[in-house]
C-alpha cells in the first residue's frame, strides 16, 4: 500500500536532497577547494541577511493572514448552506487562477496610479506615482498581497471541505446545548479541524520561505532589478547562474530545507497533528 508513495518520495524527495548534498560540497570560483566552506560562504554573502530579513517580514505578513482569513472565511462559508454556497466556492477559487506572471501583471496594473481602475482611491490616499508604490520598503507587503490572493481561495475551499467532515451529531448536540453560531464555529468546528489548519500552516510557511516567482518576475520585467536577490531562493539562483557557484546554491537550498523540516516537526509535535488520524504515538 505504501509502495507508490515511497517510490515517489525517493525519486522526487530523497534523491534530489542527496544530489544537492553532494553538489553543496563542489568547488566554486570563491571556494576552489570545495567542501563545507560553501555553507559558511552562503551565510556570509552580503545579500544573505537582507534577503533573510525580507523573507522574514514576508512570512510574518503572509502566514498569519492566510491562517486567520482562511479559517474565518471557511467557517463563514460553512454557515452559508443554500444556493449561494457553490457560486461562492467558485468565486474563492477564481483569484487562484492568476498565478505567476499573470498575477504580477495584474497587480502591477492594479497598483500603478496612472493605470489602475482604482486610481481615484490611490490618488485620494496621496499616491499619484508608481514610484511611491514600487519601492523596497513596500515590496514585502506587495508580494504578500499577491501570494495571499493567489493562495487563499484554494485553501478556503479545502478547509471548507475539512469542515464537512464534522459529524452533524456533534453540531446538533452543540445547538441543543444552546451554543450560538459563533460559539459553534470557535469552540466546536475550529478545534475539530485544527490539524488541517496546522497542515496548511506548514505548507504555507514552506511555500512562503521559498518565495521566488513574484520578486523574480517584477525584477525581470516591469522594474528591472527592483527586487533582485530579494528572497533567499533568488539568492540561491544567483549563486548558481550568475556566479557559477552551484555548491553555494545547493548549500543555501539545503539550509532552507532544514529550516522547513525543523519548523514542520516542531509544529507537528507541539500539536495533536497525528492523534486520531490512524497514527499512534510512540
Amino acid at each position: 500500500m505504501i509502495a507508490p508513495y515511497l517510490v515517489l518520495l525517493i525519486a522526487f524527495g530523497i534523491v534530489p536532497v542527496i544530489v544537492a548534498a553532494i553538489t553543496s560540497l563542489e568547488p566554486s570560483v570563491i571556494n576552489p577547494g570545495g567542501g563545507p566552506l560553501n555553507y559558511l560562504q552562503a551565510l556570509q554573502d552580503f545579500r544573505f541577511l537582507p534577503a533573510l530579513g525580507n523573507v522574514g517580514v514576508f512570512l510574518l505578513l503572509y502566514v498569519p493572514s492566510m491562517l486567520i482569513v482562511v479559517a474565518l472565511m471557511s467557517l463563514l462559508l460553512d454557515t452559508v448552506q443554500g444556493r449561494w454556497n457553490v457560486p461562492l466556492r467558485l468565486a474563492y477559487i477564481v483569484p487562484a487562477s492568476l498565478t505567476g506572471a499573470t498575477a504580477v501583471l495584474v497587480w502591477y496594473f492594479l497598483l500603478e496610479p496612472t493605470l489602475s481602475p482604482y486610481k481615484d482611491v490611490l490618488h485620494a490616499l496621496g499616491i499619484t506615482q508608481g514610484g511611491q508604490i514600487w519601492r523596497a520598503p513596500n515590496l514585502a507587503w506587495i508580494f504578500a498581497l499577491m501570494a495571499f490572493f493567489t493562495g487563499a481561495g484554494n485553501w478556503i475551499v479545502v478547509q471548507y471541505g475539512s469542515l464537512q467532515s464534522i459529524s452533524d451529531d456533534i453540531l446538533e448536540a452543540a445547538r441543543i446545548d444552546g451554543a450560538n453560531a459563533w460559539q459553534i464555529g470557535w469552540r466546536i468546528k475550529l478545534p475539530l479541524i485544527q490539524k488541517y489548519v496546522v497542515y496548511m500552516g506548514i505548507l504555507v510557511f514552506a511555500a512562503g520561505l521559498q518565495v521566488f516567482v513574484e520578486p523574480q518576475l517584477i525584477s525581470s520585467s516591469v522594474y528591472p532589478g527592483l527586487a533582485s536577490n530579494w528572497s533567499l531562493n533568488q539568492l540561491s539562483y544567483s549563486f548558481a547562474f550568475q556566479s557559477n557557484n552551484l555548491g553555494g546554491a545547493a548549500a543555501l537550498s539545503l539550509m532552507l530545507l532544514i529550516v522547513c523540516v525543523i519548523g514542520a516537526v516542531f509544529v507537528i509535535f507541539k500539536t495533536d497533528f497525528f492523534e486520531g488520524a490512524g497514527v499512534k504515538e510512540k
Partner: peptide, 19 residues
C-alpha cells in the same frame, strides 16, 4: 563583467533616484 552590473542599477541606483 561577470557580476550582475545591470541588475544592480535597478536594485540600487534606480531605486535610490526614484526614491
Amino acid at each position: 563583467v561577470r557580476f550582475a552590473f545591470v541588475a544592480q542599477i535597478g536594485a540600487v541606483l534606480q531605486a535610490d533616484i526614484n526614491g
